[in-house]
Design a protein around this nucleic acid. Structure first.
Lengths: 206, 206
DNA sequence: CGGTCGATGTATGCGCCGCGCACATGGTAG
DNA sequence: CTACCATGTGCGCGGCGCATACATCGACCG
């Protein structure tokens, strides 16, 4: 309810905070994200967000969880149903692109000494993992999906961070795409060798 | 000079701050690192460190740079002169181990939206890169050393972060070592395929 | 040997932060 | 209509980064 009225009790502060946080992250690359700035942005008092988020960490986790969902969406958009190594490479490139296009958000998602207890965050992470795993399994039915997924995710994730931190040349999207594509394709060549490794699945704390 | 006297002007606050910062990072896993806490630890007033570090970022960068040096040392210790894929895998395991043993320091080194202008930091990073490159080149003389180094560093770096964030099972050193070893060895099998890729060397901003 | 000077550390203050606590507001259930 | 309780406000505490003004003491020079 509460149609137009941006007046008395605000209506949906919870969502508004998330939105405000996202905007702040996009605007300046810093992953700082102060609760007070979010409140200001949402047009409420500094302490109002505490009605919806236990503490700063909770808000950050909510933002991160939304980031995971958007990342998954972005990956799907890169290729509807990846089935070949090249398709998979395209998805990998999309992953790194997401990191470079939303640096602050990406840092919030992965670079914070986050509290793994947050359920929303954990489940969103698992969703990503299973998405990757499904693609890998579809593309390489013979390989151990867990092991290969781990390798690919780690490789791509590492590339994303190294680019983000200026440790690798990220000057142009083309260069980045080449680097990522090459690296991933290189890993693919190794996939048969991995069919016996027994990497454990992700246990985001149990 | 100033032998025993911990009295008037302190002697070497610059080093003491670094030391204090390191201790704080090791003690609680948080990568927060407040300048005031460092000052307190060093037994000086809150603003004293500013005589030696322009701002918080400068101190953080100094700590990070020392971290890079220690990491390089730790890698060397893992294997004096790696020459085989297995040797290289051992170095990779050491890299991840370093991250898990010094989580806060590792985050400071890589997960901060750091200012890449800091010269100490940049040069320490380059040193790491060249170290990795040299090993890779010695182990795989036929592969494009830049491309393969990039892939390996990214893979290992990604594994480190994924473990650090609880996205992969890091419950026991053995499990971690297996995962890292498998992933790296898998990449090795692909090295011949990489001889034509033209990955650019690290240009930590130019 | 005494005075000056510059490097180093201190004191104080500003604005921002996370967050606890008492209080105001207004939609809704009885 | 009224009492209730979710939601939002105001205020205050301690901690933070950092600028500015001031104190201290070793070194250097006459």
């Amino acid at each position: 309810m509460a149609r137009e009225g941006a007046s008395y009790h605000h209506g949906d502060l919870r969502a508004a905070c998330l939105q405000a946080a996202r905007e702040l992250l996009e605007e300046d690359g810093s992953a700082a994200l102060s609760l007070r700035a979010v409140a200001r942005r949402a047009g409420v008092s500094a302490t109002a967000p505490y009605r919806h988020y236990a503490d700063r960490d909770a808000l950050v986790s909510a933002v991160a969880a939304q980031g995971y969902r958007e990342l998954a969406e972005h990956l799907s958009a890169a290729h509807p149903s990846p089935a070949t190594p090249d398709d998979l490479a395209a998805v990998a490139v999309a992953y790194v692109r997401f990191a470079l296009d939303h640096p602050a958000l990406f840092r919030v998602m992965f670079a914070e000494p986050c509290d793994p207890n947050n359920e929303e965050r954990v489940s969103a992470t698992i969703a990503i993992w299973e998405y990757v795993r499904a693609i890998v399994h579809g593309t390489f039915p013979d390989a151990d999906p867990d092991a290969l997924s781990t390798s690919i995710w780690a490789l791509v994730h590492g590339l994303a961070f190294l680019h983000l931190d200026g440790k690798l040349d990220a000057s142009s999207p083309g260069v980045v795409a080449d680097q990522v594509g090459d690296a991933v394709r290189a890993l693919f060549a190794a996939s048969p060798a991995m069919s016996r490794t027994a990497t454990t699945p992700p246990t985001p704390e149990s």
